[in-house]
Every structure is written in structure tokens, then in C-alpha cells.
Amino acid sequence: MTRKSCIVLPDDYKGYDVDYFCVPHHYEDSLDSILIPSGLIQDRIEQLARDIAVELGKEPFAVLCVLKGGYKFLADLLEKIKQYYRFSSENSVPFSVYFIRLQNYEDNHSTGKVKVMRVDGLSFLQNKNVLVVEDIVDTGKTMQVLLEILEKKQPKSIKVASLLVKRTSSSSGFQPDYVGFEIPDRFIVGYALDYNEYFRDLNHVCVISEHGKQKYSNHSN
């Protein structure tokens, strides 16, 4: 199956004024704009869930979630996959869920090094269909390192689903199999994407302001 087209936000896309949507009061002065509202995120995930369920067919699969930012996307995606199975004529398919933690950012800068912080039971990969769930693909280098690790376990197949792909000149060229949105090269927060562990409790995907970066910098806490 050919990878579905994603929603592309152009470079001149400004998003929505923060005043148009509900955001936690403590973040109101720290956001430039709301890039993708929560409702649009949910509708797009529903379509991704359908695409994934159709392609995986009736074979059981294993889900590997990249923590920490991927947890909310994972929860919403799996719930919508289960809904699809419940309301379609197809039989439901069992799946297992595992977690891995990688680290590549300090403040808003990539460190250039990928650290594998946590791996849960990679022995499950052998001869299995694996769905890797990621919040955002930036340069793509982190995912390429992870896939090299996973391939050594000899899975039957590996597919990658990412809610976001950032359009950046430093991209390695890696493209996930399933993408929600392609976005401009801006530093974003919300929907479990953080800045120094803040903003995970924000439902929308937003552009952080310079004031927000200073306010929540490691050097300010």
C-alpha cells in the first residue's frame, strides 16, 4: 500500500491566535500561536488508525511507543484502531504494546547524539509485524538509529507512524509510513510534546514563543 498523503502546513502558515482556543492559563504568555487545534488532531488520527488497520489486516502486531512524547498519540491512535475493529465487518486483531525511550534534545537544541534510555523486551520483535509510534520526526536521524536497532531483532515487518514530520533543511530524508501532518521548521509544544518537561498538558500543538523558551528554560528552573 502506498503511503497516504499527509496534511501539509505551508511555511507561511501562521496557525490560530491563542485567544481563539482554551489553553491552560499558565501557558497563555508562552505561545506564539496554535498550529494544530486538538479537534483537527483527533480527526486526523482517526483516519491514520483506519489506514493502519486496513494495511495490517488480520495479522496480530506489536506496537512500540517512543517515550515520552509519543504516549498521547499512542493512546489516541490505539483507541481509534480498536473503534475501527469494533464497527467494521473485520474481525478484531490482538496487539501488544511496548515502550522505548530516546533522548536527543536539550532545551530547543538537538544534541546530535541519540541516547537509548529505556528498552522493554525487544525479543518480541522476531517474526512479528511491528508498528513504531512516534510523536514527531525532525531530522529523521533518531528514527534511523532506532530502526537499525530493531532490524537486528529480525521482525517480519516494521512500519512507522508519526503524528508530525518537520520540514527542515537538516532532514536525513527519512519518511514514516504514516504521517498526520507535515509542518514548517518551528519549535512546537503540546499534545505531549515538551520543552524541558513542560507543555505536555497542552491539548493543541502550538508554537512556543521566545518568552516561553526563557520562562521554561533549564537555566530558569
Score class of each variant (00 low, 15 high):
76 D>F: 06
125 L>G: 04
37 P>H: 08
82 K>V: 04
60 P>W: 00
60 P>D: 10
55 E>N: 09
55 E>F: 02
55 E>L: 03
131 L>Y: 12
33 S>F: 04
70 G>V: 09
72 K>Y: 00
29 D>K: 10
48 L>G: 03
125 L>H: 11
58 K>F: 02
63 V>W: 07
137 V>C: 11
140 G>P: 07
136 I>N: 05
139 T>R: 14
74 L>E: 00
100 I>E: 11
129 N>A: 09
9 L>S: 04
59 E>N: 15
31 L>F: 05
22 C>Q: 14
59 E>H: 14
58 K>V: 10
57 G>K: 04
58 K>I: 01
130 V>K: 09
124 F>L: 12
47 Q>I: 13
142 T>F: 02
70 G>C: 06
25 H>W: 03
19 D>E: 15
93 V>H: 14
13 Y>K: 09
42 Q>Y: 05
27 Y>Q: 13
7 I>H: 02
11 D>F: 01
63 V>Q: 03
44 R>W: 01
120 D>N: 13
4 K>P: 03
110 S>P: 03
114 V>S: 08
55 E>S: 08
42 Q>H: 10
108 N>Q: 08
105 Y>M: 05
89 S>V: 09
129 N>V: 09
11 D>W: 06
34 I>S: 00
104 N>R: 08
34 I>E: 00
69 G>H: 07
129 N>C: 08
92 S>E: 12
17 D>H: 00
71 Y>I: 15
21 F>N: 08
9 L>C: 08
91 N>C: 11
50 R>K: 14
119 V>K: 05
103 Q>V: 06
26 H>P: 05
136 I>A: 11
15 G>K: 05
38 S>W: 04
130 V>E: 07
123 S>F: 01
14 K>G: 10
22 C>A: 15
69 G>E: 03
73 F>P: 03
86 R>A: 09
93 V>R: 11
114 V>C: 08
16 Y>L: 08
133 V>H: 06
140 G>F: 11
69 G>I: 13
138 D>F: 02
12 D>S: 12
